[in-house]
Simulated assay, not measured.
Amino acid sequence: MKKILVSGANGQLGSELNLLSENYNQFEWFFADRTHLTLDNLSVLENQLGLVNPDIIINCGAYTAVDKAESEQELADTINHLAVGVLAKWSLKNDAKLVHISTDYVFDGTSSIALTEDASTDPINIYGATKLAGEHLCLQNNPQAIILRTSWVYSSFGNNFVKTMSRLMKERETLSVVNDQIGSPTYAADLAEAILTIITHSDWKAGIYNFSNEGEISWYEFALAIKEIGGYTCEVSGIPSSSYPTPAKRPAYSLLDKSKIKKEFQVKVPNYKESLKVMMSL
C-alpha cells in the first residue's frame, strides 16, 4: 500500500484532502502538521521525511500571510523556497512522487488574457517571489515533480474571503471590496479532487499546471456572489485597490488558463459559482 504524506494538514487544502482521503483507502495517509514536518527548520526536515518514508508527498504547507511576508522575508523564504528544495531532493533520492502547491502571485498582473503555465513570471510581492523561488528549486532538485498553481483559495475550513465576507455582511449595513483585481476563486475541495485525479491517473506527467475554478471575476464580483447565495442585505460597493492600501501589492490580473490540466489529466473544473454554492450550503 502506497503511503501519502500531506504537509500543511491543518490548512484549507490539507483539511479538504483529509476529508476526501476516506474515499481513497487504497492509500495509507499521513497528515503532517507543524509538529510532524517542520518546514521552518531545515536541519530536522530530512529526518522527519525519513520517519514517515512516503511514496507520495503533497506539499500543502506554505507561508501564506501575504502582507506579513513583507516584514518576515526570511521565514517566508525558508518555508516557501528552501524547504521545498529539501522535499524535492528527498523525493527524488527516495523515488517518491511530489505534488507541490504554488500560486498565481508568481505573475505581475499586467496580462489581459488568461495565463498559461509558460507565461512569463515576475512577482510583485515577497510572498510571490518566495513561491516562485520554491518552484524553481523544486524542479531543479526533482524534475519529476508536479507543481500546481492556484488562486484565491477558500474552504469551509480555516480563514478565508468567503467566511470573512459572510461574517461582515451579517454585521454591517455597507461594505467596500476592491473591483480592479481580476482572477478566479478556487474551492479547496475542488483542488483536492484535482490532486487525487492526478495521483490516481495512469500516467505521471511532471511539470507545472494551473488550477482554479472557471469564471473571470473581481473580488467585488466574488463578494456579490457571496451576498446573493447567502441572501444578505448588506450593501456592497466596488472600490479601486488604491483606496485599500496593503503592505504587499497584489497582481491586478491573475486569471489562470486551465487547458493543460484538463487535457493531460482529464481534471474537471467546476464553475466558481457552483462550487461557492456547495461550500456555503455546508
Rank of each mutant, 00 (worst) to 15 (best):
1 M>R: 10
1 M>W: 00
12 Q>K: 07
13 L>R: 00
13 L>F: 00
16 E>F: 00
16 E>D: 10
17 L>S: 02
19 L>D: 13
24 Y>E: 06
26 Q>I: 06
27 F>W: 08
27 F>P: 00
30 F>V: 14
31 F>P: 01
35 T>I: 09
38 T>G: 01
39 L>F: 06
40 D>K: 07
41 N>P: 00
42 L>N: 01
42 L>E: 06
46 E>T: 13
47 N>F: 10
48 Q>E: 15
49 L>H: 01
57 I>G: 12
60 C>S: 15
61 G>P: 11
63 Y>A: 09
65 A>R: 11
69 A>M: 12
70 E>R: 08
70 E>V: 11
73 Q>C: 10
76 A>Q: 04
81 H>L: 02
82 L>S: 15
83 A>Y: 08
84 V>N: 04
84 V>E: 02
93 K>D: 12
93 K>Q: 14
95 D>L: 11
95 D>F: 07
98 L>G: 01
101 I>V: 13
103 T>V: 10
106 V>C: 04
107 F>V: 02
109 G>M: 02
113 I>E: 14
113 I>V: 13
115 L>I: 06
117 E>L: 07
119 A>V: 02
122 D>F: 03
123 P>G: 09
123 P>R: 03
123 P>S: 09
125 N>K: 07
126 I>Q: 12
131 K>C: 08
132 L>E: 07
132 L>M: 14
133 A>C: 10
135 E>M: 13
135 E>V: 12
137 L>F: 09
141 N>V: 11
143 P>K: 14
144 Q>T: 11
150 T>S: 15
154 Y>Q: 08
159 N>P: 04
160 N>W: 07
162 V>P: 05
165 M>S: 14
165 M>W: 10
170 K>E: 12
171 E>H: 11
171 E>M: 14
172 R>K: 09
173 E>R: 01
174 T>V: 06
175 L>P: 01
176 S>F: 03
179 N>R: 02
179 N>H: 00
181 Q>T: 01
184 S>W: 03
187 Y>I: 04
188 A>E: 06
190 D>P: 09
191 L>I: 08
206 A>D: 08
207 G>C: 12
209 Y>Q: 05
211 F>Y: 15
215 G>R: 13
217 I>H: 03
217 I>W: 02
218 S>D: 00
219 W>S: 07
225 A>E: 14
227 K>C: 14
227 K>T: 12
227 K>D: 11
228 E>I: 06
230 G>D: 12
235 E>M: 08
236 V>Y: 04
236 V>H: 01
237 S>T: 01
238 G>K: 05
245 P>C: 06
247 P>K: 13
249 K>T: 00
250 R>H: 06
254 S>F: 03
257 D>I: 03
263 K>H: 14
263 K>Y: 13
266 Q>N: 15
268 K>P: 00
270 P>G: 05
271 N>D: 15
280 M>F: 02
282 L>M: 11
282 L>T: 10
282 L>D: 11
